[in-house]
Design a protein around this nucleic acid. Structure first.
Length: 661
RNA sequence: GGCAAGGUAGCUCAGUUGGUCAGAGCAUGCGGUUCAUACCCGCAGUGUCGAGAGUUCAAAUCUCCCCCUUGCUACCA
């Protein structure tokens, strides 16, 4: 029989920043899945890597006065160096600057081009030279770049496009035909929603070299480089040596794991690219959510970021991995809460699992000289445990394989708890006292043999600790090596632990953590970090403000200013504009005979009723404009700070229609 | 406003196709035990399963409507 293969990938991480918790999580999940499939006896390959091309990187490098290659070499190494600390065992580490990758991307592009799925077309947009990017009509603020408040240039640029739209019907059908193509299910619906929304047009895949040089040249036009997705997504197969490499032939199609923010490229672009090139599509796309901090997204500027390295220093890789896998329900967002982390470590690992090992191994030392005893006749209680071993492991295996990691771990802990209970009900110490040695041997054997199964199942989750546990139970296994056992065998029969095996005299793999002291330490550290971040933010904001002020506007002539008809008016009627969230419809009296209708984006800051009767200042001779189906004949003046708007009004009431000037 | 996902014990969440589904873990209280990492075991709870209406012999589970949260999206002359 041919050995089943399993190929899993993380996204390749963009090297404009150092690795954070999200990267760590994605990679740990993939590692755990890879190890899990190894335990199933499969032939496994696991890929991770870094994405190193693009505008942002070229600019970050320039800012530091370094070449892009130097820059990406360094950041990429931060990722590469972190993984061993998390016991990640990847088989490949792909960098998009790798020459072989570059060559194969070009080969793939050529192939798609030859198939007629890439065409040369025109692409028009508002280009801001300050930002070095295009803005859509909608993104512009008053026709100006939102960053620089300067007028962007409308550039028509020729570019290459991937004819993706033609594959939408195919993709839709493919997703419908493959219920677990994207999982969990919610993201599958989201993908179908994306497809059905019809907003998916052909994909612009190039940039002229004149504007962006840090990328892979198009093989059919050396004046252009690929832009983003062809370069990045293709790593999943270039790592395997597509099209002729033996690994490609053996391991593709595999499956991917991504965070929810890149569902679209992986769920839409990538399958279309593969299909266009005539390659089989991946088997599953596993999508996970975000880690939050107190229900808020982690961000550097808030200083509420979790540092994987620090977590490993404080708690060890095993506990950290365990927490991430047990705490996040795969697919949903989860809170990374230090309290919960310590609770998990203390109750699940120290109290339940660690203490089980400690008490059983101590008793085995005391009563059996640390040698696995020969079991005798089994009682009903023993059978209950051996049955539970089998069902718990089966549940664990089924759930884990379907990316329900938290539930899988729960299923395993049913067994751990039952074992602690079994110790209490069987009371080996009492058996010893009463001289019931036969029974004592059986009880200890049942315990040791069950613990061995727990340890084995945990190898994907906590490789280091599981190895230690297995070693303590006399299993011949070396650190960093895969156990020479399969989970299916362990489900099928209870044995596996041989009487006569020497086991460890004691165990202390999961020490308890002093909750209070640890929380204080963490509190202190995160407070310091938040203050630092706040200070940095202030400086950055100051700089931005200064820049904004500088950026303001060329001089206008007195006549130009006078051309604005600014007047005081009183709000007579105010209501929310139907079908809009932010816009209020105001009827304002400027002593023109009848009130004038002006729309304004104030709904977030003012309730309609509180504006009625207030005086405001508005520009009256602005071009009327239709918004959401209603006409706006002017603009109400406001002052803005940090996105909050305040209405401007005369300091004392003035007659309606009074001129400002 | 549109689309999507959620609202179940103090907290984090399970609840496949409607009928032991009202649950688990943590936290809380009481009791037991001593092999053990002040650990483990037992018992005890608390819930109008977001609100309301409907379908049904029967709904957390299906339908409708409403409220709230989150994400994407539209509107800010």
């Amino acid at each position: 029989m041919e050995t089943k293969t399993f190929y899993i990938t993380t996204p390749i991480y963009y090297v404009n920043a150092n690795p954070h918790l999200g990267h760590a999580y994605s990679t740990v999940v993939c590692d755990a899945l890879a190890r899990f499939h190894k335990l199933r006896g499969e032939d496994v390959r696991f890929l991770t890597g870094t994405d190193e091309h693009g505008d942002k990187i070229a600019k970050s490098a320039a800012k530091q006065g370094r070449s892009p290659q130097e820059f990406v070499d360094e950041i990429s190494s931060h990722f590469r160096n972190l993984w061993p600390k998390l016991d990640i065992q990847n088989d490949y580490f792909m960098r998009t600057t790798n020459p072989e990758h570059v060559r194969l991307v070009q080969k793939f592009l050529q192939k798609v081009y030859d198939n007629g799925d890439i065409y040369f077309g025109e692409f028009g947009g508002h280009y801001c030279t300050g930002c070095e990017r295009f803005y859509t009509e909608k993104e512009l603020v008053n026709g100006l770049c939102p960053q620089h408040l300067t007028k962007p240039e409308y550039i028509k640029e020729k570019n290459y496009f991937f004819r993706m739209s033609r594959y939408m019907p195919w993709l839709r059908q493919y997703v419908l035909d493959h219920p677990d193509f994207v999982r969990p299910d919610r993201y599958r619906s989201e993908l179908l929603g994306l497809i059905d929304s019809g907003g998916l047009e052909d994909l612009c895949i190039s940039r002229p070299k004149s504007r962006l040089s840090w990328g892979i040249e198009l093989p059919f036009d050396r004046d252009y480089v690929t832009y983003v997705w062809f370069d990045a997504l293709l790593n999943y197969i270039t790592a395997l040596g597509w099209p002729d490499g033996p690994d490609y032939k053996k391991y593709w199609p595999g499956e991917h794991l991504v965070a929810k923010d890149i569902l679209k490229p992986h769920g839409v672009f990538w399958p279309c690219m593969l299909h266009s090139a005539g390659l089989p599509v991946y088997q599953h796309l596993n999508v996970h959510g975000y880690w939050l901090m107190r229900d808020t997204k982690m961000s550097k500027s808030l200083g509420n970021v979790v540092h994987p390295e620090r977590m490993i220093e404080l708690f060890g890789s095993d506990a950290f991995r365990y927490f991430m896998l047990a705490e996040m329900h795969f697919g949903s967002d989860a809170n990374f809460n230090y309290d919960a982390l310590i609770t998990r470590i203390n109750s699940d690992l120290a109290n339940d699992l660690g203490n089980l090992f400690s008490r059983v191994l101590t008793m085995t030392a005391k009563y059996e000289d640390s040698v696995v005893p020969q079991p005798r006749d089994k009682t009903e209680e023993d059978r209950a445990i051996t049955d539970l071993c089998s069902t718990a492991l089966r549940n664990f295996s089924d759930l884990f394989g379907n990316v329900h990691f938290a539930r899988a771990i729960d299923a395993l802990w049913e067994l751990v708890r039952a074992l602690n209970k079994y110790v209490d009900t069987q009371a080996p110490w009492a058996l010893a006292k009463e001289g019931k040695t036969e029974r004592l041997k059986t009880v200890l054997y049942v315990l040791l043999a069950s613990m061995r199964k727990v340890a084995l199942a945990l190898w994907p989750v906590m490789p280091h600790a599981a190895t230690l546990m297995l070693q303590q139970l006399g299993e011949e296994i070396k650190e960093g090596e895969k156990p020479n056992l399969t989970i299916d065998d362990e489900i099928a029969c209870f044995g596996g632990l041989y009487p006569g095996t020497k086991v460890a005299p004691s165990s202390n793999i999961f020490p308890r953590i002093d909750t209070k002291a640890m929380l204080e330490l963490l509190e202190k550290e995160s407070k310091a970090e938040m203050e630092k971040a706040a200070a940095a933010k202030k400086v950055a904001e100051g700089a931005a403000d200064a820049k904004k002020d500088e950026a303001v506007l060329p001089n206008v002539t007195f006549d130009q200013f006078k051309a604005c008809d600014l007047r005081v008016g009183t709000v007579k009627v105010c209501e929310k504009l139907p079908k809009s969230d932010r816009i209020l419809r105001l009827m304002i009296d400027f002593a023109e005979g009848q009130p004038r209708q002006i729309l304004s984006g104030l709904a977030e800051f003012y309730k309609p009723e509180e504006l009625v009767g207030r005086q405001v200042i508005a520009v009256l001779n602005l071009e009327p404009r239709k918004i959401r189906g209603a006409m706006s004949n002017g603009m109400v003046l406001t002052a803005e700070k940090d996105g909050k708007l305040t209405l401007i009004a005369p300091s004392v009431p003035m007659p309606d229609g009074s001129r400002i000037g």
